[in-house]
Design a protein around this nucleic acid. Sequence first.
DNA 1: CGGCATCCGCATGGATACTG
DNA 2: CAGTATCCATGCGGATGCCG
Lengths: 118, 118
Amino acid sequence: MPEYCPITYSMKVLGSKWKIPIIFKLMIEDGQHYNHLKRMIGDNITNFMLTKSLRELEADGLIIRHDDHQVPPSVTYHLTPLGKDLAMTMNQLFDWGQELYSNKEKNSSNSIDHLKQQ
Amino acid sequence: MPEYCPITYSMKVLGSKWKIPIIFKLMIEDGQHYNHLKRMIGDNITNFMLTKSLRELEADGLIIRHDDHQVPPSVTYHLTPLGKDLAMTMNQLFDWGQELYSNKEKNSSNSIDHLKQQ
DNA sequence: CGGCATCCGCATGGATACTG
DNA sequence: CAGTATCCATGCGGATGCCG
């Protein structure tokens, strides 16, 4: 059964744990090498998950894997136009995330204020 | 350890399976009753998951639960301003999802074309 | 350098039955 | 009508080790 809602479909493609960080890093600097990407993400991603995520992003047409066929291996990853089109949406999600966060902070401090008044 | 990236934070809040459909339905028609919402989503969501999702969305400040304290029970769910602020982002994700989908279709038909040429 | 193979724990989500 | 309470399956993601 196909996925009819484009939003749900987008969430499926972007929703796994490391996809957004990867795309975000490639937006900052396109054409990064595997290990450079890994270091930028923070080194807490395993090789397995990084490779898996990159292959899926490639299959979904968001990035392109460029292999120089050298020894030692040299592979770079680039955003496709489709991948780059995510920039605007990312910015909006970023802004909304900050709003969400400050909203939560506000609620927390309200609870603290409530305690202080006792 | 807090979540420092607002985008990743947003994805955590919106990422579970039924959150987006729920918000989307409330955008179409705000103030829906529990069972009406359930029917609109398609009846394949269980009571357990719907309740769980609604409670989490409420805790995150995206929706408000309004209980009329009647017998029989009458409960409606409304989007908060924060929830409504998602509309623009949703629209962009919708457009991008369609782009993503047509991109995939194109690749599929290319494969078919390739086969046809043999 | 840029991966892949394997095993495994745990969280997410589903099925079913029951209730104020 | 609007939920709860349990139990259970699956799959995502992590840990570790090996490879061309």
